[in-house]
Design a protein around this nucleic acid. Sequence first.
DNA 1: GTTCGGTGAGTGAGTAATTACTCACCAAAA
DNA 2: TTTTGGTGAGTAATTACTCACTCACCGAAC
Lengths: 214, 214
Amino acid sequence: MTKRRPKTSRKASGQERQAGIIATAASLFAARGFTGTTTREIAKAACCSEALVFKHFPTKRALYAAILAEKVPLTELLTAVEDAAKKRDDRLVFTMLASHRIRRGADPTLLRLLLFSALEGHELSNMFFKNQHRIFYDYLAGYIEQRIREGAFRRVDPLLAARSFMGMLAHHRLLHEIFRVPAHRSPEDCVESYVNLFLDGVQAGTPATRKTRS
Amino acid sequence: MTKRRPKTSRKASGQERQAGIIATAASLFAARGFTGTTTREIAKAACCSEALVFKHFPTKRALYAAILAEKVPLTELLTAVEDAAKKRDDRLVFTMLASHRIRRGADPTLLRLLLFSALEGHELSNMFFKNQHRIFYDYLAGYIEQRIREGAFRRVDPLLAARSFMGMLAHHRLLHEIFRVPAHRSPEDCVESYVNLFLDGVQAGTPATRKTRS
DNA sequence: GTTCGGTGAGTGAGTAATTACTCACCAAAA
DNA sequence: TTTTGGTGAGTAATTACTCACTCACCGAAC
């Protein structure tokens, strides 16, 4: 993007350039997908020649793969959640997860990149999905399972419950970021509502008017 | 795909051909997206020449637009749900919706087409989304609002509640159809679980251990 | 301080293949 | 004969990718 060392030296270091190309290419791929983005566009956006892009990455696919591989799993969030989980503060656990997803799932390119790679069927998309999302489900399902054993939650299917919670959040982002549905309430309100809805549905104690069919 | 009237006559009627081209193109667009699909592939899959495709549709985009426009809103489902809604059978209402989404949301191309069109930012994607999905939210939000007024549901945000329910279902399909996550339970079980989870979270009567923060 | 050669950053001008799209033309119905 | 379904062989533009080449910089010999 921005040219470093504009006067004293006109050359960027190899690492700088490579990082710059990855960053600009990532936003282009996120906006238009793999097939929808040309190497010429990438070079232009990165302020260099096409030839230089291919000096750094042997093929367009290799550049794409480097981008997907660069995004690291969100372990720091899970370790933060771990504290709340140890205290068995259900509300805090789910609020932290929801809050991260809705308010700070900040990088808007990530969701688009993830969807595009899955839709376009790239080999790395599985790994990408695993690093970026699956880790949540597994963790959450484990927590829910434990809370069921402790009698705090109803006997729901842990994995399905985890997915339904993450589903509410993922769908929320999908609606707003991809389908451009305007928000009618603040993110904080949404987080609270989702958490309430979920906890009321899953916490033990007083099952609401339950008429079990079949 | 298959050649009609193979012996007696080698020419298909214009309407037949057009419908055939739309059908085959739809599955290709759903599989590879708009930019990822070539008119040559479409012609080959439709067993005709590229020139004929352009006889029926002036541009590739026009063909794509015809496909998106062809998919009609699912009003028949909503009228079926209407009966259950009149009887105030909450469980049936939500089970019907979930069941349609998870078990009979049969057309797998629809979801991919919808996502691709939204991601690739086509003009008609808004209308497509509205016809295919938004109608559910609006209807559901209306029903929930009414049930709240009647005291059957808690005072939740109707639109947010509707979205969280549809979100669970949409995410379910997304995981399985796009991200190829293997199902670990039968569709019927999933439907029941989702409905239980949601109704317990939203139905009035006995709010489960509710500690309202802030 | 100047010169010199080596190295890595960087590019203009290609290439062959593919793209959406066209046109002159044909053949079978009507 | 006219109309309609259908095509082979294009075209200009775009695609990913290559190659011969220049330029800036740096350390060292002069």
